[in-house]
Simulated scan of single mutants.
Amino acid sequence: MNHGPPLPAAGTPRTVLMCPGQGAYLPGALRHLRDVPPVAQVLRRVDTHSAKLGGSGGPPVGLLLTDPGAPGPGRLVLTAPLAFDLATYAAVTASATLLLDLADPPVHAVLGHSVGDLAALTVAGVITPEQGVRLLHLRDRLLRDAALPAAGLLATDMTADRAADLIRTEGLAQLRVAARNAPAQTVLAGPDDELAAVGRTARERGHRATPLTSRTAYHHPLLTEVHRTFRRHLRAEPVAPPTLAVYTATTHRPVRTPAGLRTAAAAHLTEPMAFHRTLDALRGAGFTTYLDSGPRALLSALARAGLPGCTTAAPSRTPAGVDRLRLRLAAALR
């Protein structure tokens, strides 16, 4: 049985690289890094393999991630949802791969958040970029064939218990708590009409309620059949032993076995996340520094809220060249 790579001895400061999902696409985010070999290679591999599979119906990720004038997230998810998914995956995979190369001292683990699990599995060497692209093409076909109702995600500043109480009292039977991200950030998933209703009530009560850019209601039973078929296809996917410890926001233990790694690749479809619980487990395992590989510093903000006193950084939070990234990393890891 594969138990994954060893972690540093007890008492040694440990660093985890976090891989976001929704919200990780930003037009032109990698424009200063387009010629850096690790980034250029990821973008080329994603676009080449996507073209072999029939393209994405939208601009190539190499253009989306290096041109600031490329379509924004809201427009892209509506007009070319597969291109949006591929760009999200490529952005995180390319950025995380480069940060792993630059980090000194090194990173000891990766943590995926939602569909960011696919990027985390890629940078840990479990799957290849070509496998990631193939899985996203498969998921796109399954989502289109499922003819799902209009549905999505809504971020609130409520606790999970308060959000669950609101769902019950409003009689919104199809809404679910999709993510317990932080003490005061809970994400809800479900049909658009019910999300709109709960959003109105939440705002009337003085809470924030923000729709997230998403093509459907991930982490929700609406996707049960998609999840079942996706898992069936995953059984045939080869997985390699991880080169870094792999964590996911759907469980608080490191994922080590081939079966567990395949489960992690599909978890974002139906499994609710308890990101705060995973962060607590990482702190208990001695992790002291949390690096965000996304362009918007979303996960570093959540880590800061959930783990007061920890070191957080988002080196890729704004487009930057290699020298600037190296300086940002050095400041976080000193």
Results as ranks from 00 to 15, higher is better:
residue 1 M to F: 07
residue 1 M to Q: 05
residue 2 N to F: 03
residue 3 H to D: 09
residue 3 H to A: 12
residue 6 P to Y: 09
residue 6 P to D: 13
residue 8 P to I: 09
residue 10 A to P: 11
residue 12 T to A: 13
residue 13 P to A: 11
residue 13 P to F: 15
residue 14 R to N: 08
residue 15 T to S: 11
residue 18 M to H: 01
residue 21 G to N: 06
residue 27 P to S: 05
residue 33 L to G: 10
residue 36 V to N: 08
residue 50 S to N: 11
residue 50 S to Q: 07
residue 55 G to K: 13
residue 56 S to R: 14
residue 58 G to I: 12
residue 66 T to S: 08
residue 66 T to R: 05
residue 70 A to E: 06
residue 71 P to N: 04
residue 77 V to N: 00
residue 77 V to M: 00
residue 82 L to Y: 10
residue 88 T to Y: 03
residue 91 A to F: 00
residue 97 T to Y: 15
residue 99 L to P: 10
residue 100 L to W: 14
residue 105 P to R: 08
residue 109 A to P: 04
residue 114 S to Q: 07
residue 114 S to K: 07
residue 118 L to W: 04
residue 122 T to Q: 03
residue 123 V to N: 07
residue 127 I to N: 00
residue 127 I to W: 13
residue 129 P to C: 07
residue 129 P to F: 11
residue 130 E to N: 04
residue 131 Q to G: 04
residue 133 V to G: 01
residue 134 R to Y: 04
residue 136 L to K: 06
residue 136 L to Y: 08
residue 137 H to N: 13
residue 137 H to S: 06
residue 139 R to W: 05
residue 141 R to M: 04
residue 154 L to S: 00
residue 158 M to Q: 00
residue 163 A to H: 02
residue 167 I to C: 09
residue 169 T to Q: 06
residue 171 G to D: 09
residue 173 A to P: 00
residue 177 V to H: 03
residue 178 A to E: 03
residue 180 R to C: 01
residue 180 R to A: 00
residue 185 Q to A: 13
residue 188 L to P: 00
residue 191 P to F: 04
residue 195 L to H: 06
residue 202 A to K: 01
residue 206 G to T: 08
residue 211 P to K: 08
residue 215 R to F: 10
residue 221 P to H: 04
residue 228 R to V: 01
residue 232 R to V: 01
residue 234 L to R: 07
residue 235 R to L: 14
residue 236 A to F: 13
residue 238 P to K: 11
residue 247 Y to K: 09
residue 247 Y to L: 07
residue 250 T to R: 13
residue 254 P to F: 11
residue 255 V to D: 02
residue 261 L to V: 10
residue 262 R to L: 01
residue 267 A to V: 02
residue 268 H to A: 04
residue 271 E to N: 07
residue 274 A to Q: 03
residue 275 F to I: 12
residue 275 F to N: 12
residue 278 T to P: 12
residue 280 D to V: 05
residue 280 D to R: 14
residue 282 L to H: 04
residue 286 G to E: 02
residue 287 F to P: 08
residue 288 T to M: 11
residue 290 Y to Q: 05
residue 292 D to S: 14
residue 294 G to Y: 10
residue 302 L to H: 03
residue 310 C to D: 14
residue 310 C to E: 15
residue 313 A to K: 00
residue 315 P to Y: 03
residue 316 S to V: 05
residue 320 A to H: 14
residue 322 V to P: 14
residue 323 D to N: 14
residue 326 R to P: 09
residue 328 R to W: 08
residue 330 A to M: 06
residue 333 L to A: 07
